[in-house]
Computed example of a mutant assay.
Amino acid sequence: MQTGKSGFSLIELLIAVVIVGILAAICYPSYQQYVLRSYRADAISQLLQLANAQEQHFADYGVYSADLVMLGAKVSERYQFKINLFAAQQEFELTAQVQGPQQADSECPLFTLNNLGQRNGQEPQTQSCWN
């Protein structure tokens, strides 16, 4: 009569834990980059919506607005949005600056969009961030 033990040995369990740990160490940084890129896409979308609202405001009133709330800006804990007006409110520049947890995105810390549709005019090396 053979007495067979069922279950896992300690060695088998440790090997499984090590394999899971290695997979997690490989996958987690990629996941973090994916999350940063997704919030980057949200910021770009928000800037484009604000620019559209600015153009609508200009069509209605003949000047651009400095009020983010009136233009429909959403509150973000990852980006700080600002409007800079120039030339007696006939020109604008929208900016989205990283803040909070998004500061880990050192590749694309700032997005700008002006009334001419120029993206990151001051920093042409970050044009790839818009893609």
Rank of each mutant, 00 (worst) to 15 (best):
residue 40 R to T: 03
residue 12 E to S: 10
residue 31 Y to E: 01
residue 57 H to E: 12
residue 76 S to W: 08
residue 69 V to G: 10
residue 60 D to C: 00
residue 68 L to R: 08
residue 16 A to M: 12
residue 70 M to L: 15
residue 57 H to K: 08
residue 74 K to Q: 13
residue 73 A to T: 03
residue 88 A to L: 11
residue 78 R to P: 01
residue 83 I to W: 04
residue 42 D to E: 15
residue 51 A to Q: 10
residue 54 Q to P: 03
residue 75 V to F: 08
residue 15 I to G: 10
residue 54 Q to L: 09
residue 96 A to Q: 04
residue 32 Q to L: 12
residue 71 L to Y: 09
residue 50 L to I: 01
residue 69 V to I: 11
residue 96 A to Y: 03
residue 63 V to T: 11
residue 43 A to D: 08
residue 35 V to N: 09
residue 15 I to H: 00
residue 90 Q to N: 07
residue 65 S to Q: 08
residue 98 V to Q: 04
residue 71 L to I: 06
residue 51 A to C: 06
residue 24 A to N: 06
residue 63 V to G: 01
residue 91 E to M: 05
residue 74 K to P: 00
residue 68 L to W: 07
residue 42 D to G: 02
residue 17 V to D: 10
residue 58 F to I: 01
residue 34 Y to V: 08
residue 26 I to K: 06
residue 63 V to Y: 13
residue 78 R to M: 13
residue 61 Y to G: 06
residue 57 H to L: 05
residue 34 Y to Q: 14
residue 88 A to I: 05
residue 33 Q to K: 14
residue 67 D to S: 13
residue 56 Q to M: 12
residue 68 L to Y: 10
residue 44 I to W: 04
residue 83 I to S: 02
residue 88 A to G: 05
residue 46 Q to C: 04
residue 49 Q to I: 04
residue 20 V to E: 08
residue 51 A to D: 11
residue 84 N to I: 09
residue 82 K to H: 06
residue 48 L to M: 12
residue 81 F to H: 04
residue 18 V to P: 00
residue 72 G to P: 05
residue 19 I to D: 08
residue 82 K to Y: 00
residue 14 L to I: 14
residue 97 Q to P: 00
residue 53 A to N: 09
residue 67 D to H: 05
residue 13 L to D: 06
